[in-house]
Design a protein around this nucleic acid. Structure first.
Length: 850
RNA sequence: GCGGACGUGGUGAAAUUGGUAAACACAACGGACUUAAAAUCCGUCGGCCCGAAUGGGCCUUGCCGGUUCAAGCCCGGCCGUCCGCACCA
């Protein structure tokens, strides 16, 4: 008689058994023996308070890999912790009057309980939250090390100010002119800020991308573009007339197109260029022009539509090669933040320069001739030509290719002592000051006598004050005079603490190495780098770039032995969990569990109101299309939730959550149980031998699943499981007991990576010893993977006309003879001339007839 | 504008060295069991056509062309969708 698998009973039971046996603890290196290490990590969560399906999918994926490696005999580190500083805790404090720390730790407790129910193979002994004083104290020590190494500095600069969150944002955190979290339009403010010298590593960060062959190309490309290395020439144009005071040497510009120097028509300065600013002090018209430029927004659309505008300064400079003068303009499209904040314009070969030149009637001199054009007649209309061609109209450069001309022009400028070859980056230094309470305090003091003084490590951690109030906007640390006042470690005089805290991205830039161990220990060296990292692609340039910088800085500060400097050897970016959206005619979003779908057109259960089915979108609170993991676990079990998020779509793509799909996964779990439950007690899986279809299928399935997991094709691995279980069910009558037992023993050990509780229940039903979560991956008999006879498709002129059975070791001639002797095939040849027979052993036969 | 990814049945998708397109699942339909329902099990399921039938033929991976004995996969050109960056000299 058959029983049903009951996840509500089985899941807690097995989790307790795992806990008792402490099966997920990573072994320290000295206990690992010959086992290779595998550090598997998913991006640690922000403790918002509730788990969502996206978490389930993310951590289920990491768990598949961690469990698979464990089964293969690796010493696995699979830790979990909390990215716990940040704005939401302060928002909660303002709204609910609860202390950010209290709110955060309560959320952590809630989410940890939810995590526990998922049955992940996590080593909780290494858990920490970034808001633990022990953690942020170590971070402060790192800060001091970096400071001493000259990797941190303070400067006044224009910064991105988020008026809603009342804090500064890094360039990476400004998306489309808006704060990445608040969505408020970002303002520019002049503030004194702390910066990490990430630009020191710009070249190394680009070079390192080469070695990351287990990263998605997309992420590597995004990082390379973000760093934005460009090679070119930095040079000065000397004044033709009176030099402005302080600029006697000329105007410094940067260009990547020195080959077009003969096409130079004017010089353009940024409105924020120091020279512009200085001239504007006694030139009202210029000052007004600068104000006009500042009005244009920074959003995509604003820039797209913004007209090129300019202001003629009246100054002129000398062309470096020719006896002519160029006017100096101020132009709104020249950015102060890139290069030198000044350019030379060659309108013929740059669209922006051309637009500007046409508007202000400046000269347009083509110097690159596209192939097929005649130098005498070639003209530039409204489109600048930026393509390949030959240099002409260009003195000694004439006739050269663009590349040769660049080299020659740079050489000429260098020998004239006007400039030199330079590399420029789009990447800026990382501004880390945040005017917030709930973050890591920066461990320095401001002393009237000594200036900025770093604290000695003995005074760490600099703890956040417990007593805070959020009744007025701004930074509570700024108002906390008790906390602020301190003595200067250098002179002993009165000093004030730094009230800025660190960007929370600093916290997540080194947590993975803290999981490995504290300090620069042998254990940290053993585990690092992370072998497989799993997380969302939204961190492609934020977290993942900062972390790569941090490992390099930690290495150079003597805090980490990691020669290559790369923290994550393998990276996998997973897709999101989506769901249909539902809306009433009144425009209210309706959640899936308020919906009645049973009778044709969907309605709201409570009111009977008609509902329109909308687009499939990422699960979000605002669209109310979320499904709560707790509800799913209560109803179907954690295994089913995990299995479904992995089964329907490739892991890098989005998966659509559907009720019927989840029910399908639940049915599968029952089918698996039925297969085990139908097996008579006492069958010996190790007694299976010989060669038959069932054994071949079992061994082949293990091979397929293994390959699919290694290639991150979890959906294909799950499909193989389905196929295998379906066949096993059919084989219940007729197959040898031992062969069925072997199949089940293998199956339980494959299932464990996806549905560990179910696998454990099945393993126990088999009467196998120990826990399946500790069982080794099934050993495949290679003899059962090779076929004695193969069925080859036979094509005639590329169209399949039949099949033929041949011995697996048959050579080309033998196969050809067999094919030609086959009556079904020869019917298709029908007296035509056989021109050629192509035999691809083990694959296909194609007969070409004329 | 620049860079990248993708486009296959009603749906999610397989086909990871150029070699049988549509595995597996969802939905749908038909049937069995049942007083009934649920659950479960069995079957059909890309399109068009021929045949009473076992069966057979033609077409089909966004569109057009190319390479090849053979193309979903390689090359060229379009169209469309999504993502990232964006006045970066």
């Amino acid at each position: 008689m058959s029983t049903r698998y009951n996840p509500q009973d089985a899941e807690p039971k097995w989790r307790e058994a795992w806990d008792k046996a402490d099966v997920y603890r990573a072994k320290p290196p000295e206990e690992a023996g010959d086992a290779p290490k595998a550090y598997i990590l998913e991006m640690f969560p922000y403790p918002s308070g509730r788990l969502h399906m996206g978490h389930v999918r993310n951590y289920a994926m990491g768990d598949v890999i961690a469990r698979f490696r464990k089964a293969q005999g690796y010493n696995v580190l699979h830790p979990m912790g909390w990215d716990a500083f940040g704005m939401p805790a302060e928002n909660a404090a303002m709204k609910q009057g609860v202390h950010p720390g209290e709110w955060t730790y309560k959320n952590i407790a809630d989410m940890r309980a939810q995590f526990m129910k998922l049955g992940l193979s996590l080593d909780w002994s290494r858990e920490f939250a970034t808001c633990d004083p022990e953690y942020y104290g170590s971070q402060q020590a790192l800060f001091l090390d970096f400071y001493e190494k000259g990797l941190i500095y303070r400067k006044a600069s224009k910064v991105n100010w988020d008026p809603v969150d009342q804090t500064v944002l890094a360039n990476e955190q400004v998306i489309d002119g808006k704060g990445w979290r608040s969505g408020a339009p970002v303002e520019q403010r002049e503030l004194t800020q702390w910066f990490f010298k990430i630009t020191d590593y710009a070249d190394d960060l680009i070079a390192g991308l080469e070695s990351l062959d287990r990263w998605p190309d997309k992420v590597r490309t995004m990082q390379a573009n973000w760093i934005g290395r460009s090679e070119g020439l930095q040079m000065r144009f000397e004044w033709a007339g009176q030099a402005p005071a302080g600029y006697e040497g000329g105007v410094e510009i940067f260009t990547t197109r020195p080959d077009t120097l003969y096409g130079a028509s004017f010089i353009a300065l940024s409105p924020d260029h120091p020279l512009t600013v200085e001239m504007a002090t006694d030139n009202e018209a210029l000052e007004a022009f600068r104000a006009d430029c500042a009005k244009v927004g920074t959003s995509e659309e604003a820039i797209e539509k913004a007209e090129k505008i300019g202001f003629d300064t009246g100054l002129t400079v000398k062309h470096p090669f020719e006896d002519r003068e160029l006017p100096v303009w101020v132009a709104n499209f020249v950015l102060m933040g890139y290069g030198t904040g000044a350019i030379f314009a060659c309108p013929a070969h740059d669209q922006r320069d051309l637009d500007f030149a046409r508007k202000y009637d400046l000269s347009v001199i083509p110097v690159v001739l596209p192939s097929g054009e005649d130098a005498a007649t070639y003209e530039i209309g409204k489109e600048a030509f930026a393509g390949p061609g030959r240099i002409y109209n260009s003195g000694v450069l004439t006739g050269k290719s663009i590349e040769d001309a660049k080299a020659a022009a740079i050489e000429a400028i260098e020998s004239a002592c006007l400039g030199s070859r330079t590399v420029n980056y789009r990447l800026r230094d990382w501004g880390v000051s945040r005017q917030r309470y709930w973050g890591c305090p920066i461990p320095v003091v401001h002393c009237d006598t000594c200036g900025i003084v770093p604290l000695p490590k003995s005074e760490l951690p600099v703890r956040l004050p417990d007593e805070v109030s959020f009744d007025i906007p701004g930074n509570p640390l700024e108002r906390d005079t008790d906390w602020k006042s301190c003595t200067c470690p250098k002179c002993g005089g009165v000093a004030t603490r730094e009230t800025d805290t660190l960007d929370t991205f600093v916290d997540s830039s080194w947590y993975y190495s803290r999981f490995a161990s504290e300090g620069n220990s042998a254990e940290r060296t053993y585990w690092m780098p992370v072998d497989q990292y799993v997380g969302g692609v939204e961190h492609a340039v934020l977290h993942l770039l900062y972390a790569r910088f941090f490992t390099r800085a930690m290495r150079d500060a003597g805090q980490l032995d990691l020669p290559g400097g790369e923290p994550f050897a393998g990276l996998f970016t997973q897709g999101m969990v989506t769901h249909e959206t539902y809306k009433t005619d009144a425009g209210d979003w309706i959640s899936p569990d308020e919906l009645n779908l049973s009778n044709g057109s969907p309605t709201v259960k409570a009111t009977g109101e008609a509902v329109t089915i909308g687009a499939i979108e990422k699960m979000s609170k605002s669209k109310r299309n979320t499904v709560d993991p707790d509800d799913i676990i209560a109803r179907y079990g954690a295994d089913v939730a995990r299995l479904f998020t992995l089964s329907d779509s490739p892991p890098e793509r989005d998966v659509e959550w559907t009720q019927s799909g989840v029910e399908g996964a639940a049915r599968f779990a029952q089918r698996v149980w039925a297969v085990f439950d139908a097996l008579p007690y006492g069958a010996d899986p190790t007694a299976a031998n010989g060669d038959n279809d069932l054994r071949r299928l079992s061994h082949k399935s293990v091979a397929n699943i293994q390959e699919a997991i290694e290639g991150f094709r979890f959906n294909s691995a799950v499909a193989s499981l389905y196929e295998w279980v379906n066949a096993l069910k059919k084989a219940e009558s007729g197959a040898d007991l031992e062969d069925r037992a072997e199949a089940c023993s293998f199956l339980a050990r494959c299932l464990v990576v996806f549905t560990p509780h179910l696998a454990e229940e099945c393993w126990s039903r088999l009467g196998a010893s120990g826990l399946v979560v500790e069982a080794p991956w099934p050993e495949i008999d290679p003899k059962l993977l090779v076929q004695d006879t193969l069925t080859l498709p036979v094509q005639v002129n590329g169209k399949k006309r039949g099949e033929i059975n041949v011995p697996a070791d048959a050579g080309g001639d033998v196969i050809e003879a067999l094919v030609m002797a086959d009556s079904a095939i020869s019917a298709h040849l029908d007296g035509k001339t056989v021109k050629k027979v192509i035999v691809v052993p083990k694959r296909i036969v194609n007969i070409v007839v004329g």
